[in-house]
């Protein structure tokens, strides 16, 4: 449970950075489709964010914390939905979590190294 609290607080920290770079860099000026979701033309578009090592690392932190928090949360909800714990549910959730982390890390690295 401590892991759930800590990963939640981690999401709060890294998520704040993520939300800031996407939603608050051009407030009330243009939609994010015209600004931060552009590929590479302006500051805080997709690639400039990934190229910055600190922001990319924070995205990985967010990925890691969210995976842990989401999979642990789903484990709780599933156990309470069916009324008992099942080790296969835990294993599947761990597998999904590992896949998401690896796949997300791949995206971050590719976008970070893309020139």
């Amino acid at each position: 449970m401590l892991m759930h609290y800590l990963s939640g607080l981690g999401i709060l920290l890294f998520g704040a950075v993520h939300i800031f770079t996407i939603f608050f860099t051009y407030p009330f000026q243009a939609t994010i489709w015209e600004t931060t979701l552009k590929f590479d033309s302006i500051p805080f578009a997709i690639l400039p964010v990934y190229r910055n090592a600190l922001l990319a690392a924070s995205l990985f932190g967010l990925l890691l914390c969210t995976t842990v928090h989401a999979m642990n949360g789903l484990r709780t909800v599933i156990a309470e939905l069916v009324g008992f714990r099942n080790k296969w549910v835990d294993r599947i959730l761990i597998a999904v979590g590992v896949f998401l982390t690896v796949y997300g890390l791949r995206t971050i690295l590719i976008a970070h190294l893309l020139v």
């Binding site: 995976t67 989401a70 998401l100 796949y103 997300g104 976008a111």
Partner: peptide, 11 residues
């Protein structure tokens, strides 16, 4: 979140 990771992978 799962959908978002898959979708950003497509970028």
């Amino acid at each position: 979140f799962i959908a978002h990771i898959l979708e950003t992978g497509n970028f």
